[in-house]
Design a protein around this nucleic acid. Structure first.
Lengths: 105, 105
DNA sequence: CAAGATATGTCCGATTAAGGACATATTGTA
DNA sequence: TACAATATGTCCTTAATCGGACATATCTTG
């Protein structure tokens, strides 16, 4: 029964806190949009529209939370995103809020 | 600097995961809408519209996550909400997802 | 007695987001 | 050579949400 709710809540979090979830993924290792899309879809078994993904990635860059470098790999032009120091602080703040939610549980 | 982000993220979470945040508050002890509004506003220093709060509380009841009893206290008609067993399962699922987010940190 | 606090609810115009289509370019495969 | 996959982007119509107003009732305090 809890598993029925799990997908619903995960989808809720991915949708509404998409910027933070993208930061989380980029923090692990530099990566690019299409790879993030595939990763989220297989890891969480939910759909992630690229029409929502790419604008959010650009917004993260404008906020200074990530930096991008255009990479040429096998003729494919990828935009590889790396988390910045500011982005790490933002993520840490998010994690400390989560920790607060888990206290008194 | 992290504190500047804190309020922004908390507001984001309260807004977009309002149903879960209300459940969290109701789980601690049975309470009512107006009290929740005041509590959230003083605890997190953010505004919570009652025009968003009451419909969300009613939606939680329709989903079977909370139950309400009309209470008469000093002439005030309160709707006191109590979390149900189903609501507790839903919350536990949320907490386990948060725990997953905090692993690999 | 008027104003503010307590208490819950609806409604509407404006903004925002969602879903999906349109768009383009290259590479690998059947 | 056509189709699927990789890769990133925009656009448009519809659906959802926001902020604030409207509404009502009781109690407390100045």
């Amino acid at each position: 029964m809890a598993e029925n709710y799990r997908k619903e809540i995960v989808q809720h979090i991915i949708r509404n806190l998409l910027d933070i979830q993208l930061l989380r993924i980029i923090q692990v290792e530099p990566t690019w949009g299409y790879r993030i899309k595939k990763q989220v879809e297989t890891d969480f078994n939910i759909k992630l529209r690229h029409g929502a993904l790419y604008p959010t990635l650009n917004a993260l860059e404008q906020k200074g939370f990530v930096e991008s470098k255009k990479q040429q790999k096998d003729g494919r032009a990828r935009k590889v995103y790396t988390i910045t120091a500011t982005g790490k602080i933002y993520l840490q703040t998010y994690y400390s809020i989560l920790q607060g939610q888990l206290e008194n549980t």
